[in-house]
Nucleic acid binder design. Structure first.
Lengths: 353, 353
DNA sequence: ATGAAAGCGCTAACAT
DNA sequence: ATGTTAGCGCTTTCAT
């Protein structure tokens, strides 16, 4: 398509200086006379010369690229995080290498290896499922790494996490305040770090209300609509006394909604439902879902900031950011006549092609 | 975090061979004795040596990385394409550099420049809004490029496009077959290439049915839920005679759904609605949306295949793939009692964290 | 079958 | 203020 690249040498020759001087100009280094700088810049403009990031990386041992590992980029939860990551990274002149693991734990390690220590300056990893030990072994090779939504037991790696205990607590407490006493929990995958935390919050709210936690009111499932639908079906078949459900995430909650619709239970009159994450979908189903809002884009942005701090060895290295979720109340728990938002629900932030 | 890297030289010394021989081994080149190969491989395993992709790129002028430019990765339409791209790229040992333009036309050029000619082997660009001339100027620098959902007038750049004329035709024809004669079109952005094609299909169906196209039954809007809601409100206020709506995409269709709910029009009894793309959301709203299915993941996969063909100068270079959309009929056009899927609706493919 | 030499395009000392 | 010399880690000729 195009012929030989213009190199720093070509520019130097055309400008009648050594290629060193050109290097100084493009890197804004001092000790170049204004006239020379001018001339060099003109030549650069004329030739359309652009320094090769590859050659540069070879000598600087920096790539200005960070890796982003997610289970599934088409999941709205992670695509929002990715957008936050991208925005900040781009504004700081970093590129983002995207990697999906396809929800496959062993792929996490493969991807991390493929992302090669020398090819990125750092990695941000979300929604990990693999074991601590293996992950730590894989992550230790990177100059810097930030975890999203998970902590290692020894807290060696900086992380940004949601206060999921609080989230689970708020969601459950809300249901209790609405007068429910039989509150089930559709709990997501057993391996989920966040799921375990939300369960703690759920238990805490029950305990505070003087209610005994019923072991079999908790039903695990894949974090999908279908997963939620089947789990709800099972749970309610065994425990028809349940009148409210706290769900692992909004997709699971939509599954619960579907099961209720299928068996003719009205929401919220016969069954109150709370989701988690507050993805766009939560506002679009009927009834709209009460959900625990998680600021995903911001989490992505903050993860990059943390990572760049580590990469550049900035002073105040903080190694944990805890994000606070907020309950957004909608019709799925309120009774249609009283449907209002406690929190100001943001004007729909959905974009499309 | 970790000390000095193991280089090809270290391996050579430890194995007692020249570093050239090591290079041969890692590249599976011939002319290495089996014993030497063994020994070198042992040392590689022991030291954990991995060749530097940067150094390699500098000499081969290949990066094994492709750029992917999308307007917004959190839009389900594009995240699905991204997943297709990622899958295939990864299987062929290519990395993907993700770039959002934030729906901003001028950012498209910036991003393309940032993606630098020498940093990626090729680019896949989706949902472009910028003018042909500027884009072509920016794209000509790359070794290879593939467009998704757009063609340049001169067809210089290979592309993968949906047959949107057909899609618009099928959607409209379906509505006409259901007995509607006043069919409006909520048309999305005026600058959208796909939108223009869908409009053609819409007109074609009307003409075939012997109906005159009413200029002001077409209402443009941003491709979002809110955009669709406002456009529907406007259109129906001016034309209460309209009983069916074809919508630019599913988000817009959901907006239409919302407006109908707000003013008490029942769907599909008082208003039939057809969306486009068939994103997961289409199956989750009530009533579920009839929509034109676009195989987005496959489009992403195919775009990579085309791109790698170009990069590697494979023989049969095809420069256009036209993907055929299929209408999936759901309750938003059928009347609740007859709600069935004409096409087998895939078991919900939604994944979550 | 193996090694030696050159060079990819650049930055970073060290001159001058 | 500018030029000279190395060398980043690798692949690619070209010898042997």
């Amino acid at each position: 398509m195009s012929r030989r690249r213009v190199t720093i040498d070509d520019v130097a020759k055309l400008a009648g200086v050594s290629y060193q001087t050109v290097s100084r100009v493009i890197n804004n280094k001092p000790y170049v006379s204004e006239t020379t700088r001018q001339r060099v810049q003109e030549v650069i403009a004329e030739t359309g010369y652009r320094p090769s990031p590859i050659a540069r990386s070879l000598v600087t041992a920096r790539t200005a690229t960070i890796g982003l590992v997610v289970p599934d980029i088409s999941n709205p939860y992670f695509s929002a995080i990715a957008r936050g990551v991208e925005q900040v990274a781009y504004s700081k002149n970093y590129n983002v290498l995207l990697c999906n693991t396809g929800e496959d734990a062993s792929r996490e390690l493969e991807v991390l290896h493929a992302l090669d220590e020398r090819y990125v300056d750092g990695v941000i990893v979300c929604g990990l499922r693999e074991e601590d030990a293996l992950l730590q072994e894989a992550l230790v090779h990177f100059r810097a790494a930030v975890l999203v939504n998970r902590r290692f037991a020894d807290e060696t790696i900086p992380a940004i996490v949601v206060d999921d205990v609080l989230g689970g607590y708020l969601a459950t407490q809300h249901l209790l305040q609405m007068g429910h006493t039989a509150v089930g929990f559709i709990a997501g995958p057993t391996t989920s770090y966040s799921g375990a935390k939300r369960l703690q919050g759920y238990e805490k709210a029950l305990t505070e209300a003087g209610l005994e936690r019923q072991i079999d009111w908790v039903q695990h499932c894949p974090p999908t609509v279908v997963g939620g639908q089947l789990a709800t079906q099972t749970l309610l078949a065994n425990h028809p006394e349940i009148t409210a459900l706290f769900c692992y995430n909004d997709l699971v909650a939509v599954g619960a909604l579907r099961d209720c619709a299928a068996v003719g239970r009205r929401v919220p009159q016969d069954m109150a439902i709370v989701g988690y994450d507050d993805i766009m979908l939560a506002t679009l189903v009927s009834p709209p879902l009460t959900s625990c809002h998680v600021p995903r884009v911001e989490m992505g942005s903050q993860a990059v900031s943390m990572l760049l701090n580590c990469i550049n060895n900035e002073t105040d290295r903080c190694d944990e950011i805890v994000v606070t979720p907020e309950l957004v109340v909608r019709a799925s728990t309120m009774g249609v006549d009283t449907a209002v938002s406690v929190k100001q629900t943001a004007v729909l932030p959905n974009r499309a092609h």
